[in-house]
Design a protein around this nucleic acid. Structure first.
Length: 230
DNA sequence: AGGGTCAAGATGCTTG
DNA sequence: CAAGCATCTTGACCCT
């Protein structure tokens, strides 16, 4: 579904549940149908396919080289050519990107030589590539945070209900003596989560005892962070 | 036609 | 201050 990263970005994000599987091979999974679909795209612009005029830099160098195909359909008056890196060029760039996201000028130059591109083109490619990676990463994080937000909202609702139940309990507080002073504890010092409450109630039901006594008998102090006061 | 992708330009910021 | 980078924008191309 084209959900995979559009340009085969390989992302490494420590987000649970997110496999950074950007397609099968790490590159080339264009949703435009890179698989095979884009080969056409890749091929046509770069290869001097028909043209025949071969230069050092397939397309880029062109600054002034108004190639005939260039007319690129004869649309743009000036900045005509829209260079498209060949598959092989993309592959090599991707490969080196995997090892190093920010190559040194020397490395760029070497890469440019190897790819028959200008260093500037290599530089731009890496720049754009980093931007795409970052964007994708941000999107993933956004997704993840949205999911977190969802579950936290859910939990918040649940806890609020719990708070309500606890508040209701305080209407008729059980009398509990402090183990130290032997004085009755104020109701506000007592916290029992609804689950404990239910367990207590169930126990009380099984062993006929006054509920209050039962509550006092079981440990009413549940190690729990103070109920959220929203 | 409209939207997506990508190479490249423009601009402002950071850093050594 | 120059080089490098991030970010935004532009323009060409492709696909549906």
């Amino acid at each position: 579904m084209g959900s995979t990263s559009p340009s085969g970005l390989e992302l490494t994000m420590a987000v649970p549940g997110l496999s950074s599987s950007s397609g099968s091979e790490g590159f080339g999974c264009n949703n435009n149908g890179n698989g095979n679909g884009n080969n056409m795209r890749d091929l046509d612009m770069n290869q001097p396919a028909s043209g025949g005029e071969e230069e050092e830099f397939p397309m880029g160098s062109v600054e002034e080289e108004e190639d005939e195909r260039g007319g690129a359909g004869g649309r743009g008056p000036h900045r005509s050519k829209k260079l498209r890196l060949s598959k092989e060029q993309s592959r090599l760039l991707e490969e080196s990107f995997r090892f190093n996201h920010t190559p040194t000028p020397k490395q760029k130059e070497a890469l440019a030589g190897k790819l028959q591109l200008r260093p500037r083109q290599v530089e731009v490619w890496f720049q754009n590539r980093r931007a795409r990676t970052k964007l994708k990463q941000t999107e993933l994080e956004c997704e993840y945070l949205k999911r977190c937000f969802g579950s936290l909202t859910e939990e918040n609702r649940r806890l609020q209900r719990e708070v309500e139940e606890l508040r209701a309990m305080r209407v008729a507080p059980p009398t509990v003596l402090s183990p130290h002073s032997r004085q009755p504890l104020p109701a506000s010092a007592l916290t029992m989560c609804p689950r404990c409450e239910r367990i207590t109630a169930a126990t009380a039901a099984r062993t006929p005892r006054p509920a209050a006594a039962a509550a006092a008998g079981s440990n009413p102090f549940h190690p729990r962070r103070p109920s959220a006061a929203f």
